[in-house]
């Protein structure tokens, strides 16, 4: 164990000497894909529950496709599949974008988690208590204000427990990144394994690092829930 730590601690945490690697890469993948997923999923979830079929149907199709196929396959499609197309390689901007493994990984991770997040938020919007909407209407709020000030804040709060799950699952899903040559924590563990043949320690160390990150995420979400969902907590006594 001490051998691996001595030789690989830097690679496990942030750099293999030439590129970023390990925890730094895993956190970067997680942060960017979650941020993208969150921002984009809010308008999409509103569209998803819309009565207008032209708005709702494309979003339904998108979430169906991305939730209905494995993330690993999506990553292969974006990394290997897209770049084998001449259309992509001959287009200057697309070529620059898809040439880089990190871009392909972020794109597929972002689209994937966005699909799940959209469904989570759409579910919470649908479950908004009718009284809240009625009260807002009684105030004379326009539809936009109704969404902005009542439905979305209320839905996001109630979606928090399910959303925290999605974030943790996304952390675990980052382990497929090495397929696109992105050196995340698991890739460093494989390096350590093939260099020392201490398989248990190499993968055990990776597991510990994921546990630590999950621990921090859970703690953050618990604090957020205590604050934002205080009004839904059962009363004491």
């Amino acid at each position: 164990m001490s051998d691996i730590i001595q030789q690989f601690w830097r690679a496990f945490l942030w750099s293999d000497g030439y590129h970023f690697s390990g925890v730094a890469i895993t956190l970067w993948l997680l942060a960017i894909s979650i941020a993208f997923g969150f921002v984009v999923s809010i308008p999409l979830s509103v569209a998803r529950v819309s009565k207008n079929k032209l708005l709702a149907w494309p979003v339904w199709l998108y979430t169906y496709v991305f939730r209905g196929t494995p993330l690993y396959v999506q990553l292969l499609l974006f990394y290997t599949g897209m770049y084998s197309l001449d259309v992509v390689r001959n287009h200057e901007m697309l070529n620059v974008f898809f040439r880089d493994g990190m871009n392909c990984t972020l794109l597929s991770f972002g689209l994937n988690t966005c699909a799940y997040t959209t469904e989570i938020f759409a579910g919470a919007i649908k479950a908004t208590p009718y009284g809240e909407i009625e009260a807002a209407r009684a105030y004379g709020m326009s539809r936009f204000t109704l969404y902005r000030r009542v439905i979305i804040p209320s839905a996001l709060r109630r979606a928090l427990p399910a959303y925290s799950n999605e974030v943790i699952l996304m952390l675990h899903a980052t382990t497929v990144a090495f397929t696109a040559t992105v050196p995340d924590i698991l890739k460093v563990a494989r390096d350590a394994n093939s260099a020392t043949y201490d398989s248990f320690d190499a993968f055990g160390l990776a597991a510990l690092l994921y546990l630590c990150i999950t621990f921090v995420l859970v703690a953050l979400f618990r604090r957020a829930e205590r604050k934002l969902l205080a009004h839904l907590r059962p009363m004491n006594g």
Binding site: T80, Y83, S84, R89, R99, G101, T181
Partner: peptide, 8 residues
């Protein structure tokens, strides 16, 4: 080999 062919 796939990435050599693809030009990466």
């Amino acid at each position: 080999q796939a990435d050599l062919v693809a030009g990466r």
